[in-house]
Design a protein around this nucleic acid. Sequence first.
DNA 1: CATGGGATTGACT
DNA 2: GTCAATCCCATGC
Length: 182
Amino acid sequence: MSDLYAGDVCTVARALIGAVVRHGETAGVIVETEAYHESEPACHAWVGRTPRTITLFGTPGTAYVYRSYGIHAMLNAVAEPEGVGAAVLIRALEPVEGIELMRERRGRTRVEDLCSGPGKLTQALGIELVHNGGDLRSGPVRIEPPSAAVVAVATSVRIGITRAVELPWRFSVPGSRFTSRR
DNA sequence: CATGGGATTGACT
DNA sequence: GTCAATCCCATGC
């Protein structure tokens, strides 16, 4: 559905729980997301359009990938209509395909630790900055929407930020062993 | 052009 | 519990 990403960023973040992120041989089900919007200071789009943030204002359904702490790549799905800076951060996946390849990239570890964080899952799936600006429906990195609505989605505050910490814009599968910061 | 700060992770006390 | 790694880029001089 072409409207999937064009709606309110929190609605999109909730709707992406249960979707599958796929890159090459590796894939996982989304169990944790967070919403970011230009109207609040935790969002990169808060500063307006810069070379870094221009992707956030582009076509909904576009991948926004950036480097965090000089080390990790973060995967986001651009949301809301073109011209509005907003995106959904993919924070954790339940691995479903290519688990051996994920282990090669991440090192020997439990399945629960392969994708249980935004920096971990990009490493496990081989997602890098070159994927910034790609189309999540037809590009090398794809998101396949859930076939059926997920029964329960928990709402809580976002993790690891210093501004707008009170907004309940984090969404996750209750009781999942694959979410971050367990 | 120089500087400082992260939407984090993993190693270590 | 604390803390360093490491780089892109926004900001300010």
